[in-house]
Design a protein around this nucleic acid. Sequence first.
DNA 1: TTTAAGTTGGTGAGTACTTACTAACTAATA
DNA 2: TATTAGTTAGTAAGTACTCACCAACTTAAA
Lengths: 195, 195
Amino acid sequence: MIAEITDRQLEIIEASSKLLTEKGVSGLTIKNIAKEMEFSESAVYRHFKSKEDIIIAMLSYLAENMNLRLTKICKSEEPSIQKLVAVFQSQLDFFEANPNFAVAVFSDGLFEESQKINEAIQRIMAVNMKNLIPVVAEGQSRGEFINTMAPEELMHIVMGSFRLQMYKWTISNMNFNIQIDGKRVINNLIKLITP
Amino acid sequence: MIAEITDRQLEIIEASSKLLTEKGVSGLTIKNIAKEMEFSESAVYRHFKSKEDIIIAMLSYLAENMNLRLTKICKSEEPSIQKLVAVFQSQLDFFEANPNFAVAVFSDGLFEESQKINEAIQRIMAVNMKNLIPVVAEGQSRGEFINTMAPEELMHIVMGSFRLQMYKWTISNMNFNIQIDGKRVINNLIKLITP
DNA sequence: TTTAAGTTGGTGAGTACTTACTAACTAATA
DNA sequence: TATTAGTTAGTAAGTACTCACCAACTTAAA
């Protein structure tokens, strides 16, 4: 929560996410991080006590960023539909600009060996849910969204569709325009969940 | 395609998928496979020329199985809705009985280092699509499903929701009843995509 | 103002261990 | 006798991480 992060740590986080995009999980090694930072492997340990800590810091940094972005959108006074669309638009913009993070978040189970890392990834999912469930519930009570299922279940379908689209993008090595396809998915979802 | 597989190779495939469930990708090593098979590491290489080949054989075996199951369901004369439900029910049954394979298929990007393995995983996705797109198209023309988007886009939403449910199950270490939650997702989807 | 002590962020060499894979050999079977 | 399926004992390359050491800077006291 209280992310007391030094400049150097932030640089390492950025180097790590770059490596993650370009070389995948197996390329995210201390050796490669050091090379990217242009210093020795042992220097990495001056700033983080373990590789696990680096990954967790990276994911927490992302979660914090995302929460700020989404909270801002969700507390506005627009119609719920517009808020929902704006949230996913914001996610599209972010991941288009930072495709490195997309790999981490949408390639599920990537760091399965560590419980702590898995929890960090789940926290990112939770940030989405925490912000959007109230929006959906509000939309339902206003008659903007269909009322045939619980907000959580509506969100499950919306998130699942969005995640699958992001996944298709990451495995294609980001070689199509995620804005176009992403927007189409969101439009299709809106068609389905409005009365 | 023509999977000419020896008994011993099948045993190795089964041992590998067991390891995948219990220890994750990082636990799927030649050493562990050998231990599981109760013979030496080098004996593994009598049956497969590389670890990559084992993983590909494992995924191909799964794809073949799945295709047989789904094709049988989809060529029946029932209403399209019932076929769609039956397909996902069949998937639920299979992954409940073989949770090991669920990890492989729903933890995307797991074996990212190998292009061939990725292709094998995508072939499994394609088996689903190949069988279900015609069912959805047929259902749309019969007025069983809504007609406001292309069959592929409807399937995207259905698959995305299903995959997310399976993912939640795998990261919870299969500690809730996937039949109950899986069925609820399918029911919710049916509510959305029927007129 | 000089000196002393402590901190920060580096280095290079090395640890203990794991990985996929191989060569050479052996025993049993066709 | 040739083939099959196993063995033992290795390999080179990689992994995260630790060690003793050091230069530059900051802080505080003489």
